[in-house]
Design a protein around this nucleic acid. Sequence first.
DNA 1: CAAGGATAAGAACGACCGTTCTAAAAAAGC
DNA 2: GCTTTTTTAGAACGGTCGTTCTTATCCTTG
Lengths: 196, 196
Amino acid sequence: MSKGEETRERILDRAFLLAGRDGFDGLTIGALADELKMSKSGLFAHFGSKEELQVAVLDLASSRFTERVMIDAFKAPRGLPRLKRVFENWVEWGLDARMPGGCIFTQAHAELDDVDGRPREVLAESERVFQEALAKTVKLAVDEGHFKKGTDCEQFAFELEGIMKAMHMFSRLLRDRRAADRARTAFERLVTSHRS
Amino acid sequence: MSKGEETRERILDRAFLLAGRDGFDGLTIGALADELKMSKSGLFAHFGSKEELQVAVLDLASSRFTERVMIDAFKAPRGLPRLKRVFENWVEWGLDARMPGGCIFTQAHAELDDVDGRPREVLAESERVFQEALAKTVKLAVDEGHFKKGTDCEQFAFELEGIMKAMHMFSRLLRDRRAADRARTAFERLVTSHRS
DNA sequence: CAAGGATAAGAACGACCGTTCTAAAAAAGC
DNA sequence: GCTTTTTTAGAACGGTCGTTCTTATCCTTG
């Protein structure tokens, strides 16, 4: 790995944290450069524009999320066990103390949903892919006979998304430590009502 | 109403829209003044600080939400009918085309949850009050015999919050027109699973 | 209608924004 | 080890930010 790529990764690693806490607009080149003890222009040269930096952070976030939540869940047998694993990984991701702003996607969703441009497109696409993967995971649970036939898998994924968003709000805004338990309870109810 | 109060309301009315679309940080005094054809300083004088302006917008948002979603629902008989009315009002609020950024609270929740200060406190407090009101509405449905005894009303409110947040994301980020139906389906399932 | 207070405008402030340009330093390839 | 390319720094740009201060205008009240 060249020196440039190495630096770029170091920048993105920090940018990932800053964006989660301060938002993608609040993520400023100057502040980021200060934290990394670099010059603004030196840092800037790695991306060419702020929008490019935002996209790079989104890509990093996607790959980390996919790795830690989805890929890991493939270790569990398909069907309900894998779905449960996805859910638990997701909860862990959302509460991960190493991410000072909580789930970076929750931040991004609210911030970028009205702003046309590449960051919005990239985010929306990754969310679509994720929703499909979620629905497919549910579908496997149907195929394995864990869930009722006729289960609306996309609807299931929609509701999962809601549970996580609620958890995030309770945990971050209200600082309610029962947030994770609430999420688990909701998940259990969701699973139970689709069991065959 | 004095001239000053009148102007203040005109400012807040516009600020409410801008904050929902561009965020509470993206809501800038200059842009707001331009839209209203006022000078920055003239507008600024009404609030004294940007933080104060943000708080005023949050207060306005709370009172509008309370009026349109909660107060209106009191026209329906207590119990399940009222809960349904709350839900439908909430959906309508979340999709209201007059608010160009969608639900202003969804924006605020993500943006302010990590920023210490009065806006955060005001927002969190109003959210707590709202959650209590929601839980109480559910409680009445239990008392009326519509829901099972032992229903966890706060848990119910938590899940409602999640449904709305998911709807917001599907509607705004993914531009999925089935978002409202997905939310209604989720609500029906939630209601059904607690029916006595 | 006049006086006095409320309301608005205008110019200026230091700070920071993203971005550009030029040069120096560091790394890579031969 | 020298040359070429990649990587970084530094200064400067026009622009916008929230905020302050002074001045003018409008509204209200007597």
